[in-house]
Amino acid sequence: MKTLPRLLSFVAAVLLAGSIAVHADDHAASRSAAAPQKLTFVLVHGATAGGYEWKKTGRHLEEAGHTVYRVTLTALGERSHLSAENVNLTTHINDVVNTILFEDLHDVVLTGHSYGGMVITGVMDRIPERIRHVFYFDAVVPDDGKSMFDMFGNAEQPDRVVKNGRWIPPWLNENPTTYPHNVGHPIGTLTEPVSYKDPAALALNVTYVPFVQDPATADENSGMLPGWKRAKARGWTIRPYRGSHVAMLETPAGLAELILAAVDDRNTTVD
């Protein structure tokens, strides 16, 4: 008769252990489901600038546990010592594409500011399979086969200043004394048309973020760059953000918050 109590004790111990294991698995699954996603960002700057303009926003993203690559395009920023004579849009697209390929990045959140919209459009067309989501920050939204100058109707400007292959905009200080600072922009990048026709690129989810004075009253006629209407026509998500054309330098934490809140935006169907 002593065997029965021992058997019952054994069965009870097995059931208890199973219950503990089940609860442990449930707890682990719950923690896994609640864990925030870790993302990989590739941030692209605008004309005459460098990767430094994304430094503060990038730091906030890194502090949230994400991985950030701030690409500086050829002949700009800390790479301004390189010649601009033979640099074109393809060069800058290659700067970003090769960062993604050689770092073996996948599910990339790709962002572009201002002229950077030209660059990321070309990147989308080249390697759409590596990209998870795209952000255009007050950026050019080009059509296929158009250049930067084509998009703004200023392909021919007799008073344009070009030195050593660099466009020198009127507002640029050619003799800065502090760092970081803007530099002349490779003129070839502004005259070469971009390709944007790969069906996989056209299907990528995109968020267009115009920088405006008042997001509550902003509409498609707001913002410095006329990309809003094209973004709307493509079914992209539009999220106006308060700030000047360099809002990432003014409120980097707020912009990082917007990025993380919008990274799962989905395009809408356009009739």
Rank of each mutant, 00 (worst) to 15 (best):
A75F: 13
D107M: 04
V11M: 11
S195F: 00
G254E: 11
V140A: 14
Y52W: 15
F10D: 08
L8P: 05
T57N: 07
L15S: 07
T3K: 13
D214V: 04
S30E: 15
N173M: 05
Q213D: 15
V134E: 08
A139I: 10
V96C: 06
H27W: 10
V22F: 11
P252G: 07
A203G: 03
T269F: 01
L204T: 14
K2C: 06
G223T: 01
Y136P: 02
L255D: 05
F211C: 14
V68F: 13
G227W: 13
T67L: 08
E103F: 02
G188C: 06
M1Q: 08
V140E: 06
V183G: 07
S32I: 14
T251H: 14
A33S: 12
E192T: 08
N267V: 02
H45C: 06
W236L: 11
P199V: 07
V109S: 02
A21V: 08
R6H: 12
E156V: 15
A28K: 09
K229L: 08
Y241W: 10
G46M: 08
A28H: 04
A139C: 11
V108G: 00
Q213F: 00
L7K: 03
V96D: 03
A29M: 11
P226M: 03
F211H: 12
V270P: 12
K163D: 06
V42P: 02
A84C: 05
L249Y: 08
N154T: 11
V141G: 00
S195K: 13
S83W: 09
L249S: 10
L260P: 05
I100A: 04
T207V: 11
A216N: 12
G165N: 09
D271N: 13
M248L: 12
V123H: 05
D264H: 13
P193H: 09
T237M: 05
F137C: 03
R59T: 13
A12Q: 10
H181W: 00
V206D: 11
I127T: 06
P199E: 09
R130S: 14
V119F: 13
I187A: 09
